[in-house]
């Protein structure tokens, strides 16, 4: 890193319930291209953790390989991070969450990382319902290797090199819905108002929370002919606005009854969906799939909370895992001792 962030903080910077300022959730300075959508996502994650008052050191950040997977360096320097193997973050996150069920796990991946080599691990992570937030910074192309189309790129989208994509794109939000993800959302890196509350909701959710974030690549996929440029995305966006109300906090009055929908999460916090003219319900998986499909047919990008099952059984519950984190258990809990071993010997004579 060639730059050092200034340590100076304004004395009147707002603090959260833990006494931290948002700067306490900062990471290193980003080395991504200026204007990269990913930096907005980093900022949204940072803000969401600050607003939700999660102690930075109780968060674990995990990623795979690629531009997206560099992101965890650029937020929350007080959290442990793991930049693992291409497409294999899901398994590392699964193991980590089994070892200590008490931390908040944020996985950051990209479309190259999740939808190509990682697609196998991704669907298995979804079906295991690992308690974590999984964010894909989806730009439809490979940045670090200079602009090749990725598996999520739309059919016909034109690459930096002028060729049209010949293959169908994989819609990872639909895939997550199909595999039974308990929270599925889509957002846009430029829509902070929607993305931040979504991330907060995802972190409060007990189970696997998936957010696919359209995040334009300014360097390799922001030209005319690309379906994933800033201009194209903004023009085709159908955003469902929402807010997040943490548990025990009163729902503020301007969300008057009848103007939207409140979805209560497992821990008592609420995601408030603003009234949009449609009567979209977040508890209907089939409707969510249909809505995504319909939007795609009309060349629109539907964003917002698409599906939520607040009472799903996560992996820890399915495995009937002890309440105490496994990494805290010591010899007394783990080692049965010589008496038991002698009786085992006895059975082998």
């Amino acid at each position: 890193m060639s730059y050092i962030k200034p340590k100076f903080r304004h004395p009147r910077l707002p603090i959260n319930t833990l006494g931290y300022t948002v700067a306490d959730y900062d990471g290193a300075i980003s080395t991504l291209c200026a204007g990269c959508g990913h930096d907005s996502i980093s900022a949204a994650i940072r803000n969401a953790c600050f607003l939700s008052s999660i102690p930075p050191h109780r968060i674990a950040k995990l990623s795979g390989i690629g531009c997206s997977s560099k992101m965890p360096t650029y937020f929350m320097g007080r959290s442990h991070g793991f930049n693992s193997v291409h497409g294999r973050m899901p398994s590392v996150a699964t193991g980590a969450s089994l070892a200590n069920r008490e931390l908040t796990y944020i996985g950051v991946s990209g479309d190259g990382d999740t939808a190509s080599i990682g697609i196998g691990q991704f669907v298995h992570l979804v079906r295991r319902n690992v308690n974590m937030t999984y964010i894909v910074a989806n730009n439809g192309c490979y940045g670090l290797t200079k602009g090749q189309v990725s598996a999520t790129a739309d059919l016909g989208t034109v690459s930096k090199y002028g060729t049209a994509n010949q293959f169908e794109g994989i819609d990872i939000a639909s895939l997550a819905l199909l595999q039974g993800a308990s929270l599925v959302a889509r957002s846009f890196s430029g829509d902070k108002e929607q993305l931040e509350p979504l991330i907060r909701g995802a972190m409060a959710h007990k189970g696997f929370a998936f957010i696919d974030v359209v995040s334009p690549c300014v360097t390799f996929n922001n030209h005319a002919g690309s379906t994933r440029s800033y201009t194209e995305t903004r023009e085709h966006l159908d955003a469902m606005p929402l807010d997040f109300v943490p548990m025990r906090e009163e729902i503020r009055t301007h969300y008057a009854a009848g103007t939207g929908q409140n979805v209560t999460l497992h821990d008592g916090s609420v995601i408030h969906l603003h009234k949009t003219g449609t009567d979209y319900r977040t508890n209907d998986r089939v409707a969510a799939l249909n809505a995504l499909q319909a939007a795609q047919e009309e060349d629109r990008i539907l964003t917002g909370l698409l599906f939520l099952d607040p009472n799903s059984q996560d992996l820890n519950r399915n495995l009937n895992l002890a309440t105490r984190p496994l990494n805290e258990l010591g010899k007394n809990e783990l080692c049965p001792g010589s008496r038991v071993l002698n009786s085992i010997n006895e059975g082998l004579r």
Partner: peptide, 29 residues
């Protein structure tokens, strides 16, 4: 509690099995 002081996961393949081991060990199990 009658709950398990261990977790066994049948992974989707050996890549994932080793990934889970790496993740769990990194986290102190």
């Amino acid at each position: 509690s009658g709950k398990r002081n261990y977790a066994i996961v049948q992974a989707e393949d050996e890549l994932s099995a080793m990934g889970m081991v790496v993740g769990a060990s990194w986290n102190g199990a």
